[in-house]
Design a protein around this nucleic acid. Structure first.
Lengths: 205, 205
DNA sequence: CCGATTGTTGACCGAAACGGTCAATGATAT
DNA sequence: ATATCATTGACCGTTTCGGTCAACAATCGG
């Protein structure tokens, strides 16, 4: 790619990046259109090809950008000293909410990349990132303090419930709801608080 | 449309329908391709146009089919005498699971149709179906017996949790997992059972 | 004020895919 | 044998695809 891209005003860079993340988040590599990305970014198609050698180069730059962004944001907010079951999950989910608020298409882009099979880009996509995500549940369960949970409550099952719920919650948000970060956090915290109240032994509430 | 379509062997009808539901579930009306639908159905594009006058006719037939299917399946399993909070939700979700098992793209097709804005089809899409879905939560809350819930538990909040969780659960299923209907039901029931155990007063367990 | 560099675009290219048509083929049933 | 009908490959004109390029405009160092 053309390194002069990074000399552009930040908003222009962001416009191209966000447009690219959007088209590749909504379709697979083959079907996503550079023309549409340019349209969404508000620049000419020729300009996109001026900064990125071709579709593949654009895609791979976005991949690097999105994975870097998510790893950075997720680990920045991570507190390794925290052991409370719900607090760990809440912190992780608040980070995800913040990412989705600031970069609505970055997560979906990464998810698509994980399943992307196009031979033009598949070999260039690392599995390291997916590997980190894959066993994050195991690492969570190893660290989270399950002793605060009421008798007979499976930590794995409760983790599933919270993760599925968080996923469903985020997906059911309208674009307007995604705009209001504080309201988003409040609603999520209120519901997870309800879970916590029922699943923790009384002495830990 | 050509009524002779219904004289075809059932598998052939299903192949065309499922292919159509798939392409319109994955893309909006404008971007979805009749060519791809034919490819997925394993028939020639000309045959599709033989049975459906044009893209619009195909889409509108699928809309009618999908909404009819979902309404039929959902109401067939519905028990109006049931008032238990969790049982109502479980029954509804088991119906959804069965639909998603048998017609993996019908639900997403309907969701897309709800947001479809293309002027060629938008005017022909009824809002009656969406209206039914929209206030189903209110009707549920009016009928469900919230008195079994522990002190201080909001029925609305718990409903959200279960719905979001069910949504996240279904979305995280792999295609292979979607194949095994019994296992699907078991996993879902186990998790919802865990919720029930914590949210119901002890005398109702 | 100059010329060189760089940001930006409209017009264009050949190829592919689009929605849609049609003549021809093959099967079936009377 | 004939009429009916399922089915398709080839084709139409149009649009969109990834990608290129010449040209214009802005900026900047001398």
């Amino acid at each position: 790619m053309n390194a002069r891209f990074f000399e552009l005003p930040a908003e222009r860079q962001a416009a191209m990046r966000n447009a690219g993340l959007e088209v590749f988040a909504k379709q697979n590599y083959a079907k996503a259109s550079m023309e549409e990305a340019a349209r969404l970014a508000g620049v000419s198609k020729a300009l996109l090809f001026h900064y990125f050698e071709n579709k593949r180069g654009f895609y791979l730059y976005l991949y690097e950008y999105a994975t870097g962004l998510v790893i950075r944001e997720m680990s920045a907010a991570h507190d390794y000293s925290e052991t409370d079951f719900f607090n760990i999950l809440i912190n992780a989910q608040l980070s995800k909410i913040a990412i989705l608020h600031a970069h609505p298409y970055a997560m979906q882009f990464i998810t698509n990349a994980y399943f992307e099979e196009d031979p033009r880009v598949r070999p260039a996509l690392a599995d390291s990132f997916s590997a980190i995500v894959a066993d994050s549940s195991a690492r969570f369960l190893a660290r989270a303090d399950a002793s605060k949970l009421r008798e007979g409550v499976s930590a794995e099952a409760l983790l599933n419930i919270v993760l599925w719920m968080a996923d469903g919650f985020m997906r059911s948000r309208t674009p307007e709801q995604l705009q209001d970060l504080d309201a988003l956090n409040d609603v999520f915290l209120a519901h997870v608080g309800l879970l916590k109240k029922q699943f923790y032994k009384e002495e830990f509430l």
